[in-house]
Write a protein that binds this DNA or RNA. Structure first.
Length: 274
DNA sequence: AGAGGTTCTCGGGCGC
DNA sequence: TGCGCCCGAGAACCTC
């Protein structure tokens, strides 16, 4: 499901739903998704009595800030949050429930069970995995052309693989990387350290504009994505290449092709992208 | 049937 | 030879 625009939309909606609430109890029914602490009981006990102070984001991770802790949550492919009443039937793919003192409950569900949660004492979350190795935020001050150029110059991987790595810049996944490359007219298999400064500049701008336009549209709903209030995104209507194999390029009319790059399905226009 | 929006871990290969 | 880094493959799970 989620790349930066979807995660950002979940963050905003989740914050509206849970900020200020105090946790009364936590029940985990799929222990493997709790990566820290290893002991699930310790995880649940630590959160009792904690108030939700804020909901932030770093890359594709959601950071739920409580009185004393930061819960680092990754939705991976299908993770989803929602606020429910006790009488609401519990979906069978619900793996964690946070019960609040006001009687409502935050449920995390995840059909594929790929999502993860790490609980850190406040302030310690950036010092270790999964956050410690992340590159700059695409909308942040330290994502500059100079930084971007330096990052690309150090690798001989394909540009698509380099961008998916989350070390040069965070937030791109399979949808937005294909879109940003199309909009920059760069072939996904180009070797990262062979891009011209012109191409790097185009790519830099298109990464920022593609992601920010997608945030404005509430993300892309491809198959299952909805935000924490159950609403779908609208950016799927703006996609040029992702999921459009065999269809006409919206710019030149050529047939879009699908190849595998770095193990990921990749759609591009053989005429527009060089 | 096999692919799917993600990222961590593992082991092999390379350079110093 | 040893160490460290980089890279690609595989794994984690379920649905259609």
């Amino acid at each position: 499901m989620p790349e930066l625009p979807e995660v950002e939309t979940v963050r905003k909606t989740l914050k509206q739903l849970i900020q200020g609430k105090t946790i009364k109890e936590v029940v985990v029914s799929w222990a493997k998704m709790i990566k820290k602490p290893i002991n699930v009981e310790e995880f649940s006990d630590a959160l009792i009595g904690q108030r939700i102070e804020d909901v932030n984001r770093r890359g594709k991770f959601i950071l739920i800030e409580t009185t004393d802790f930061t819960l680092v949550s990754h939705l991976r492919m299908e993770g989803r949050y929602g606020l429910f009443q006790p009488i609401d039937p519990v979906d069978k793919h619900t793996h964690v429930i946070f019960y609040f003192e006001d009687g409502t409950e935050l449920r995390y569900k995840d059909v594929r069970k790929f999502g993860t949660m790490h609980l850190f004492k406040k302030g310690e979350e950036f010092g270790s995995l999964p956050l410690s190795q992340l590159g700059p935020e695409p909308f942040g001050e330290d994502f500059t052309i100079a930084n971007f150029t330096k990052g690309l110059s150090r690798t001989t991987r394909s540009i698509k693989t380099a961008l998916l790595d989350q070390k040069i810049v965070v937030g791109l996944g399979n949808i937005y990387v294909d879109e940003a490359l199309f909009r920059s007219k760069i072939h996904p298999e180009r070797i990262a350290n062979t891009l011209s400064s012109d191409e790097i500049e185009r790519l830099y701008k298109e990464i920022i504009s593609t992601l920010s336009e997608a945030v404005e549209k509430g993300g892309s709903t491809i198959r299952s994505y909805v935000n924490s209030q159950g609403q779908i995104g609208m950016f799927q209507l703006e996609l040029y290449v992702y999921g459009r194999k065999g269809q006409e390029c919206k710019v030149c009319g050529h047939t879009l092709e699908r190849i595998i790059v770095g193990g990921r399905g990749t759609v591009f226009c053989p005429h527009c992208q060089k």
